[in-house]
Nucleic acid binder design. Structure first.
Lengths: 342, 342
DNA sequence: GTGAAAGCGCTAACAA
DNA sequence: TTGTTAGCGCTTTCAC
């Protein structure tokens, strides 16, 4: 493989001109063609590392994802959607994605910037913990561009792209209300996550609007895992079944369905259940899970685009977008007589 | 943030010495401490981009993953395991992971190396197509280190880390045989994937060993999707049910279970089904799916380690490792009377 | 063990 | 529009 020098000679121009051709500078069309021909001939491609180095940047957007060996804290359910969204956005401008697996204690975010590994950061699975918040606040003070996904820190001024989790919880619950259910329980995620809080909030709104009482026993606390859903089923069996349950994610909803089934209680017949995320698994369980679809692809694309914009313009106006969600009705909340195929 | 020059002055040494401290050169302990103190004081971290540039490398291992907008060709099921494995390996040597979403037509692998975006490539979802093979052969000829995951091209000499798919297919089928099933069908994945071929091969071996006939109608062709499993159920209903089915992955197995269930045929009662992958969903479906566990984490770690080794040593001896798999028995192939809880 | 200095391949400011 | 040239921050010989 040739270097720029060879190409310059071959095309009869200076190295700078070769550079301009490859980085979109102003070059006469004839010259551009000569250079491209030479490059083609000599099999030349600019060295990305050198380019980025000279530009004083990395050309990467870092994706922080929670990593605990052997524990799957991070829900892989919508990961591929999100990634595709990031990928779509960065590809438009020639950036790349740097994957950064980090255990919750490793909050060396600032170092990632100072070591020039990334020009911006997308942070997945951030939770409302003092150290977490402090690490992010520090980043912000340094003026480093980063964005949280589906997680918000009230009053922090952080960049955030979230789903309309309140609306989702509301729609799901309202749907249950409209179907005539009255005793509607909520199986929540960890309240350190704002999306868990918001989904629960939406549930409450719908209950209040319908003037339905939320009894203490209707408040189930899970941790987003299938297991915690399964355990919630045991509790429900002991304390008496509600008419319906709104679960804050699909994994818990599925665990719940499984736990109840083992006790002879069938979702979609004896009890109605709605989940959240529209994960792949929601179509794999039995009955198929009614759920709330979250536009993860769009969220990813939006987040990356806005970050790139901040990188390029240098402007740091905080952004905060909330994307709409959609109820997906399947069998887990449908009466046997009106079952639909999906 | 300070640069190396400041640190050098502060510590009273030359820049070269600072460099040595941070890249593990030979430095007197006292000097090393002085430099580190200065760096700490001045909040200095070496610029990764500059380091890599000077070293003439990128410091990245690229992960190619199949990307089709809106289509989930790539099974996300074991993606997180694999990633964690890569991550574990690269972290040991300060490398990073570059995520490269590529549609099947985009086989610009060589450019990734020539543009210095990556020092090595892990290629996921490679299939036995002429262009694919040609692109990989070209890479190999150029001496670029890359590795395929769970996919092999016979006689190619490519680096490959695979699961023992033949053994997996064999074990799964043998288990069905041992349980007394005789008419055992196979639901295969696309034969362009070597793992699909091998899993099927394992099935055949077990059938032959047990002197069981494989009737034409026992050979079902799917495409690894849940839908194709669902459709296979329809076929089975028409042509008459076998005693058991070995499905080449969990998604198809789950689709199959769902399709059969709609026709009133229950897996684990009326028919035995075993899948492959031990995906998350295998615990979410009903009945819980018996399957073959694949050590994706280990495979990822191994692949990345071997590639790093090739990067550092410059040696290009092809490697090929086959990791053992394990049968996981759940309810989909268990008779009602002997059901176990997992 | 440490310092001096020549690159690494590119960008960008300045000239022409 | 194009050429010249000074960096960008580090690694790496080569002396000392």
């Amino acid at each position: 493989m040739a270097n720029r020098n060879d190409v310059a000679k071959w095309a009869g121009v200076s190295e700078a001109t070769v550079s301009r051709v490859f980085s979109g500078g102003a070059v006469k069309e004839a010259t551009r063609r000569k250079v491209l021909a030479a490059a083609e001939k000599l099999d030349y491609l600019p060295n990305t590392v050198a380019q980025n180095f000279a530009k004083g940047r990395s050309g990467h957007i870092g994706i922080i994802l929670p990593y605990l060996p052997k524990v799957r804290l991070f829900s892989v359910d919508y990961f591929s959607e999100l990634l595709s969204g990031f990928g779509e956005a960065v590809r438009e401008v020639g950036y790349d994605l740097l994957l950064l697996l980090r255990s919750p204690e490793e909050q060396d975010y600032s170092e990632l910037f100072r070591a020039r590994k990334v020009d911006a950061l997308v942070i997945l699975g951030a939770k409302e913990a003092p150290e977490q918040k402090a690490a992010l606040a520090a980043l912000k003070k340094e003026g480093q561009p980063f964005c949280l996904i589906d997680q918000q820190f009230m009053g922090s001024g952080f960049n955030e792209i979230v789903a309309d989790n309140i609306a989702g919880g509301y729609m799901a619950t309202q749907h249950l209300v409209n179907r005539g259910y009255r005793k509607i329980a909520a199986l929540s995620g960890p309240m350190v996550y704002s999306n868990a809080r918001d989904r629960f909030h939406g549930y409450k709104l719908a209950m209040e609007e319908a003037s339905l009482a939320i009894r203490d026993q209707d408040l189930l606390q899970g941790n987003f895992s299938r297991k915690s859903g399964y355990e919630a089923a045991l509790r429900l069996m002991q304390q008496g079944l509600p008419d319906a349950v709104f679960a804050a994610n699909d994994r818990m909803a599925i665990g719940l369905i499984q736990g109840l089934k083992e006790a002879g209680v069938l979702a979609g017949r004896d009890i109605a259940i709605v989940g959240f995320d529209n994960a792949d698994a929601s179509k794999m369980c039995d009955p198929a899970l009614s759920t709330v679809d979250v536009p993860y692809f769009e969220m990813g694309k939006t987040a990356a685009r806005r970050l790139l914009q901040q990188i390029f313009t240098g402007e740091r106006q905080p952004f905060h977008e909330r994307l709409p969600v959609q109820l997906v009705v399947r069998d887990s909340c449908t009466r046997a007589s009106e079952k639909i195929t999906f």
